[in-house]
């Protein structure tokens, strides 16, 4: 559980808040599945959509992925007994389902003859600040495009830690690795992101100028 050997290279690193909804949601689910699931939806559909959006890069695809993931979660829960439900960490558990569902979608799309539809974000969705400032639009699009340059694991680590604002323990849970390894994925992802931004890679422009 130690991050031995992993240099923390990020300035201003701070602890993300632990999940304030976990206890309430698990208790509600153990009480009654449908009512509890409504509680789960309220607490987590935002973070599920945020991760889906940064995984697919497209708003419509993200809505499909989020809805499909939530339904898969419901089906899984209906097979769990009350003890298992109470022991659940709902947020990392749900986000694991989102990433697995996406992996399946990509795999299935690759098997289809026409294939390539929406494999990796090609035309990323700009960040939410787009309407506000042109400068931010530039940054948001650029950054979203740069994210697409990372390996899946690095992108997932960075998105979970810094877009979804999960504590590193939950990031590790979703990635299915020790905390130290998760830190390392985040750190390497950020390093690569910086390099991408520096090189202008991943911009919407076809090629670098000059």
């Amino acid at each position: 559980m130690t991050g031995a050997g992993v240099a923390e290279t990020v300035a201003g690193e701070r602890a993300a808040p632990s999940d304030p909804d976990a206890g309430r949601v698990s208790a509600a689910l153990a009480e009654g599945l449908d009512v509890g699931f409504a509680e789960l939806y309220r607490a987590y559909h935002g973070v599920v959509f945020a991760v889906a959006l940064r995984t697919t890069g497209h708003r419509a695809d993200a809505e499909d992925l989020a809805a499909e993931s939530l339904l898969r979660a419901y089906r899984a829960l209906s097979g769990y007994d009350a003890r298992r439900i109470r022991a659940l960490s709902p947020r990392p558990w749900l986000l694991t389902i989102v990433l697995n569902t996406r992996r399946n979608q990509v795999r299935d799309a690759a098997r289809r003859p026409r294939g390539a539809d929406g494999e990796v974000p090609e035309r990323p969705v700009p960040g939410p600040t787009v309407e506000e400032h042109a400068e931010h639009r530039e940054t948001g699009e650029h950054l979203a495009a740069s994210l697409a340059q990372l390996t899946d694991t690095q992108r997932h680590a960075v998105v979970l830690r810094h877009v979804a604002d999960l504590p590193i323990g939950e990031v590790a849970e979703v990635l299915g690795c020790p905390v130290g390894t998760a830190k390392s994925h985040v750190s390497r992802g950020l390093t690569r992101l910086r390099a991408c931004i520096e090189n202008g890679a991943g911009t919407a422009r076809p090629a670098e100028r000059g």
Binding site: T9, G12, A50, R59, E63, V163
Partner: peptide, 29 residues
């Protein structure tokens, strides 16, 4: 790209990628 400022800007930029308006998926779920 190596100053702490840039690190902060990068993290702030990533945080800003979180959509502030999650769509209502209740009809689909």
């Amino acid at each position: 790209m190596t100053t702490p400022d840039h690190g902060d800007a990068l993290l702030a930029g990533l945080a800003a990628l979180a959509p502030s308006d999650a769509p209502d998926l209740t009809d689909r779920v």
